[in-house]
Write a protein that binds this DNA or RNA. Sequence first.
DNA 1: TCTGGGGTCCTAGGACCC
DNA 2: TCTGGGGTCCTAGGACCC
Length: 448
Amino acid sequence: MRTTASILHVDLDAMFAGVEQRDKPSLRGRPVIVGGIGGRGVVATASYEARAYGARSAMPVAEARRRCPPGTAYLTPRFPAYRRTSQVVMGLLAELSPLVEPVSIDEAYVDLAAGDHDLTVAGVTALAAGLKARIAAATGGVTGSVGAGTSKLVAKIGSDLHKPDGLTVVVPGTERDRMYPLPVTTLPGVGPATAERLRRSGVHTVADLAAVGPADLLDWFGQAHGTALFRLARADDNRPVVAERETKSVSAEETFSTDIADRSRLGTELDLLATQVGGRLRTAGLSGRTVTLKARYFDFTTITRSTTRTQPTDDPQVITQAARRLLADVDVTGGLRLLGVGVSGLTEFAQDDLLSLLDPAADRPAPAGDDSGGPEPAVSDTPAGPQWRTGQDVCHDEHGPGWVWGSGRGRVTVRFEGPRTAPGPVRTFAADDRRLRPAEPPDWTGPG
DNA sequence: TCTGGGGTCCTAGGACCC
DNA sequence: TCTGGGGTCCTAGGACCC
């Protein structure tokens, strides 16, 4: 357990709505709902003005419309704009420490112990206050709530304590005092099902949970979840801040505006989804062995059917064929509300692409030549490489499109395209790496 | 006007192998 | 006659997070 409050959790306040209010001054001070505005849409983010009327994330937009007054704005998400704002903030965090763990487009942990900082409570408080001011200035007024503590758990709870625009440093040694009065649902991993099971046993607060014996928790929740709850209730958390995580699966799904029972239409939708998945796999340089079909019925019951191939693939046609075979065994007579396609069991490269091993002109790298510590490319006879700017769009032969996260001392750190709502992997290159080149802004940079 | 879309992790049962 | 165990892989479903 750490003895200093050296982990920060940064959480941008109602970020999607905040970006919209920044870009459209007429929306400032008004309730704003960002989400799917079709018949089956849900709220992605409600501005604090809208929350005053009871609008919440994940609520059907239809319900939010009932609650919010006339004059409320209902907007479709503009992910490119949110991503740009996210990039700016992540860049600021990267200046604090090399160890930054993005959790999502609007949230990250920072390990200050990996930087050079005064880690006293006063020092961390001043640092966090300065960070908040820089975030607001650099984003044009989007605010962030910051928590600091001796663990990820405590930092996250801290950032939640005084939202929006909050700053909470949990003084080392006072973790349990701060946590015990809070509802158990404050703890990460305590969702509706866990909360209901705890409620039935009279457990409402973190203090209540800390009083439950380990045998009961294991009995109620099984090995993994029971053990986790026992530790979290005691503020016992030593999870490290991890800068980069391996992607485990890539998927795409669509909820139809009305249920579809026609097999040929479902087949067409499946092709579209498989093409998206295959394209994203290729961009990421990944391929996978298991193809999973997901189907949801009118009553929201959801089934999955999967098949595992001998060789990994990133080929949309192969994925489509596998998914179509799985769909053939699914009863669709009552219509499907949702269809999804996913690929898991991922490896770095398509191993069934034997030609790329033999053909030096193939556009895909051979497995032996990957980016981890391999030799640098041939020395360039052109002048020194470009000057990389934070936030600049770049392209890399192996990793596809990305943007500059930080640079200096002859190195440039690039975050590559990830799934739409989450940041992708981070790689560091020599600034003159010829595989790295400035990119035209991708097609999603247009307005709205 | 009921319930998005992208993920992660865990459990449990059966097949299969030694 | 009667029913070993452990490990791994695969499949399906569910809880949870943002």
